Computed example of a mutant assay.
Amino acid sequence: MGIEVVCAFILQKDKVWMGRRPPHKHMGGRLEFPGGKVDAGETQVEALKRELLEELRVEATVLSEAARITFQYPEKIIHLTAYFVEISGDIQCVEHTEGVWIELDGSPQSDWAPADVELWNQFRATRIR
């Protein structure tokens, strides 16, 4: 079955924002695209707006879907959908220990959460076509 999760590609020129997960959480210390679980009764867009407000204290305008994957962790399956998002306000790391801007043409690094690596590779593969 799996868990429905959404995340944001927040772009700034030729970079995308990622946050470092807190050490006590699943995949602690890894970089991820911000977002979270879709709650019962929520649409993906509603969930993403809520998560970005909670995690980053920003208002979000969800533009379009960027990529979609299903990823199998040893303990769970997630269905992860990324959206291009425009934000208003300055990003505040409420849920993340830090935020970093990653080059759009860069490759995933070893400190990325595995699902985000696969999502990024999917995005880059469809972007090249």
Rank of each mutant, 00 (worst) to 15 (best):
L104M: 09
P74V: 03
I102Y: 13
H96K: 04
E103W: 10
T97A: 06
D105H: 13
F84E: 09
I91P: 03
E95V: 01
A66L: 09
V85L: 03
Q72D: 12
A113Y: 13
A113Q: 10
G106E: 14
F71S: 06
Q72T: 04
A82L: 11
E75K: 02
I78Y: 04
F71T: 04
G89K: 04
E75Y: 05
F84H: 15
I91E: 10
C93K: 06
L63H: 15
H96W: 11
E65P: 01
W112V: 00
E95D: 13
T81M: 05
I102S: 10
A82S: 14
E98I: 05
L104Q: 07
H96I: 07
A67D: 09
E75D: 06
D105A: 12
Q92K: 10
G89L: 06
T70E: 04
T70Q: 02
D111C: 05
C93G: 06
E65G: 11
T61E: 15
S88G: 09
T61V: 13
R68L: 14
F84P: 03
I91M: 05
E98S: 11
E103C: 03
E75M: 09
G106C: 06
I69H: 06
R68I: 08
Q109H: 05
V62C: 10
E95H: 15
H79S: 07
D111W: 09
I78S: 08
A82Y: 01
E75F: 04
T70Y: 09
S110A: 14
F71L: 04
V62G: 14
V62D: 12
V62L: 14
A82D: 14
Q109E: 13
P108Y: 07
Q92T: 13
V62Q: 14
D111L: 02
H79V: 01
D111P: 03
Y73Q: 07
T61D: 15
T70K: 08
Y73P: 09
D111V: 07
P108K: 05
T81Q: 00
G99Y: 11
F71V: 07
A82I: 01
H79P: 09
G99M: 01
Y73F: 10
D105T: 13
K76T: 00
W101H: 06
E103G: 06
T81W: 10
T61H: 10
G99E: 11
I77H: 00
I77F: 00
S88L: 04
Q72M: 01
P74S: 11
F84A: 04
P74E: 05
V94T: 09
T97K: 12
I87R: 09
V62E: 12
G106V: 02
E103P: 02
G89E: 02
D111M: 12
P114I: 01
A67R: 12
E86S: 04
E98V: 00
A67S: 14
T97Q: 08
W112A: 02
T70F: 03
D90L: 08
I77N: 07
I77R: 08
A113G: 01
I91A: 08
V85Y: 04
Q92Y: 10
W112M: 02
P108S: 12
G99H: 14
G106F: 06
A82M: 07
L80D: 11
R68N: 15
W101C: 06
A66E: 11
L80Y: 08
W101Q: 08
T61Y: 08
Q72F: 00
S64K: 15
G99L: 07
V85W: 06
V94D: 05
Q72L: 00
T61P: 03
T97F: 10
E75H: 00
F71Q: 03
